[in-house]
Lab assay of single mutants.
Amino acid sequence: GKELVLALYDYQEKSPREVTMKKGDILTLLNSTNKDWWKVEVNDRQGFVPAAYVKKL
């Protein structure tokens, strides 16, 4: 099944490779191999968020 993460904080994208999320959002985790930036999918968009801003559910 898909792995989900919870947004712990708001995050505003700073580049086209990133995505914006709001605290409390549930996101689909696509890739967590990089310890600093995790790739997630939110609202049919894929991009990176800081790993410290999310936690695995």
Rank of each mutant, 00 (worst) to 15 (best):
K55W: 08
Y53T: 09
P50F: 03
L6R: 08
Y9A: 13
K22M: 09
Y11P: 00
S32T: 09
V54E: 02
L29N: 01
E18N: 05
V40I: 08
V49I: 10
A7T: 04
A51R: 12
Q12E: 15
L27A: 08
A52V: 10
K55D: 08
G24P: 00
Y9R: 15
L57D: 04
Y53M: 14
L27N: 01
G24R: 02
V49A: 03
A7F: 01
L30V: 12
V42W: 09
V54Y: 01
Y11R: 03
L4G: 03
N31I: 08
Q46Y: 07
K56T: 08
N43H: 14
A7D: 00
I26V: 11
D44A: 10
P16M: 09
M21Q: 02
K23I: 06
D36P: 02
K56N: 07
K35A: 13
D36H: 14
E13H: 09
L57N: 03
K14A: 13
L8T: 04
G24N: 06
K14W: 04
R17A: 13
D36K: 13
D44T: 10
M21R: 00
V5S: 03
K23L: 06
N31K: 07
T33K: 11
K39N: 07
T33V: 10
K2W: 12
K55V: 15
V5N: 01
K56A: 08
L29V: 06
L29Q: 00
A52C: 15
I26W: 05
G47T: 03
E13Y: 05
V19I: 15
Y53G: 08
K23A: 13
T20C: 06
L4V: 10
Y11I: 01
I26T: 07
K23R: 11
N31W: 07
L29P: 00
E13L: 07
N43M: 13
V54H: 00
V19Y: 03
V5K: 00
Y11T: 01
D44V: 07
E13P: 14
L6P: 00
K35Q: 11
T20H: 05
A7C: 13
M21T: 03
T33G: 11
N43D: 14
K14D: 06
S15Y: 07
L6T: 07
L29F: 03
R17Q: 13
D36A: 11
D25N: 07
L30P: 00
D10P: 06
Q46L: 07
W37M: 06
D10E: 06
M21H: 01
K22T: 10
K14G: 08
N31M: 09
K39Y: 15
S15Q: 08
K39M: 15
L57G: 04
L4M: 12
D25W: 11
D25E: 12
E41A: 11
L27W: 03
V49Y: 00
Q12W: 13
L4Y: 15
K23F: 05
S32M: 09
T28L: 14
L57C: 14
V54R: 00
L8N: 03
V42C: 11
G47H: 02
V5H: 03
K56G: 06
